[in-house]
Amino acid sequence: MAQDYPHGHHQSVLRGHGWRTVSNSAAYLLGSLRPDMVILDVGCGPGSITVDLASLVPQGKVVGMDTTSDPFEEGLKLAAERGVNNVSFDVGDAKKLPFPDKTFDMVHAHQVVQYLDKDARIQAIREMRRVAKTGGLVCLREGDQGTVTFYPEVDGLQEFIDLYCKIARANGGEPDAGRRLHTWVKEAGFQAADITVTAGTWCYNSPKERAWWSSVWVDRIQQSGLKETALTGGHATQKDLDRLAEAWRTWGSNEDGWYAIVHGEVICQVR
């Protein structure tokens, strides 16, 4: 997904991804876990969800996969710190998974297929279905930028969200993926009766949450692949990006600041 992912793997991006856990980003699949499961985590990034999943299946194992090994050091470090030894990391492409048919009890992907173009995203879901065992599960969660809501109405914040969506679509992705996810898995071959559809949220309101979330976006705007994509694609100037970074700082320092986004979630059973 490296060529499909506009953010790259700058430290600011990994810092944002490293906050994610099963509890705050994959709670919808907790009821489906068994202690002996073999799980594939597609687009695992720095592996915080991957390692968390491994801790929840102590008699099983979890494989984290991404298109580059750049973020794996973070995942290996986290696993060592937590004493989790049933996890490994491999390089691979979601559109052509490097695993045999019917290998995994569960295939999980968080914020992955929204960055792929239409044909690629359907192919990736089909690949996840292919490597899942009969009776196994494909579990996907995708954000939906059209559901973002925030307070107070800081000048520039909605402009940034609009810019983010413009860049994502120019790159072939779909930032309003959450509301479409249940239709994508049907396009990939799952029957409606085998799909459980839910929604989850992220919400940032406490001083710690505001400081962290705003700093993540300030750093991405100023340092990550998102900056380069915005500039080289002609979507924004450096002056625009500096102004939008300041909007995030303003929101993050407001004691009444509140930000939320809805995510679409699906659990698909493989027949």
Rank of each mutant, 00 (worst) to 15 (best):
T237Y: 13
K118W: 03
R130M: 08
K186Q: 14
D242E: 14
T229F: 08
E142P: 02
A132E: 04
G43K: 02
V197I: 15
G189F: 11
F99P: 01
E246K: 13
Q111F: 03
P71W: 06
L76A: 09
W212Y: 13
H17G: 06
G264E: 01
S214Y: 10
D176W: 06
D117L: 05
L97G: 00
R271K: 11
E265F: 09
W251V: 04
P100E: 13
D219Q: 07
R169F: 03
G172Q: 06
N85K: 15
V57C: 08
D242R: 05
G173L: 05
E142S: 09
N86Q: 10
C268V: 04
E228M: 10
F89A: 02
G257A: 15
K77N: 09
D256Y: 05
W258L: 11
E265C: 14
E228H: 11
W251G: 00
E246R: 13
L40Q: 03
H108A: 08
N205A: 09
D4K: 01
V91A: 13
S69V: 02
C139W: 01
E246W: 08
V38P: 01
T149K: 11
N254R: 15
L29M: 11
G233N: 08
T149W: 14
H10M: 05
L137R: 00
L78P: 01
E142A: 12
V22E: 00
V138W: 00
F190A: 11
A168H: 05
F104S: 01
R121C: 05
R243F: 08
D66Y: 01
Q145P: 02
R220E: 08
G31E: 10
R179A: 14
G8Y: 07
A79M: 04
E159I: 03
G173N: 09
A27M: 05
F72C: 04
E228G: 04
Q111K: 05
V154A: 13
E228T: 06
Q114M: 14
S25Y: 10
H182Q: 09
C139T: 13
F89S: 00
K61T: 03
Q59L: 13
D101Q: 07
E265M: 10
Q123P: 01
L163V: 07
H110W: 08
Q191L: 15
W248C: 02
V51S: 01
R129F: 06
N254A: 13
I195S: 15
Q223N: 11
A260H: 04
A192H: 10
T229E: 12
K166Q: 14
L97C: 04
L76M: 08
R121E: 07
K118Q: 03
L163T: 05
R126L: 06
L241R: 12
Q223L: 10
F160C: 11
D90F: 07
R249A: 15
A177L: 04
Y164W: 15
D93Q: 09
G173E: 01
G143S: 15
G45D: 01
E159G: 12
R249Y: 03
